[in-house]
């Protein structure tokens, strides 16, 4: 597994804060009440994917930067 990149799409994020509750060290809120990534800090990739899954809006994307593989959301969700 290479470098993991996590991004939040602000055209989708509604500020449910679920990511923040599940992983408070990774996610925070910006001034608009939308989620931002404040640092992965060695968080394991399974936990990141499981947290991304909790987003009701599928706003969180988890990618392997080295291979370019999108680990979440899965293609079948059509996001």
């Amino acid at each position: 597994m290479g470098n993991i990149k996590v991004t939040v799409n602000h055209n989708r994020c509604v500020g449910s804060q679920l990511c923040m509750h599940f992983l408070p060290d990774v996610f925070d809120l910006d001034g608009n009440g939308q989620a931002i990534v404040c640092g992965l800090d060695g968080t394991n990739v399974t936990t990141l994917v499981q947290t991304a899954e909790q987003c009701p809006q599928c706003a969180i994307k988890v990618e392997d930067e080295t291979t370019g593989e999108v680990l979440f959301p899965p293609a079948e969700l059509g996001m």
Binding site: R12, V14, G15, S16, G33, P56
Partner: peptide, 13 residues
């Protein structure tokens, strides 16, 4: 994009 509020926003979405 279409970031509507039909399901509300925030913690009660």
């Amino acid at each position: 994009p279409n970031l509507h509020v039909a399901f509300a926003h925030g913690i009660h979405v």
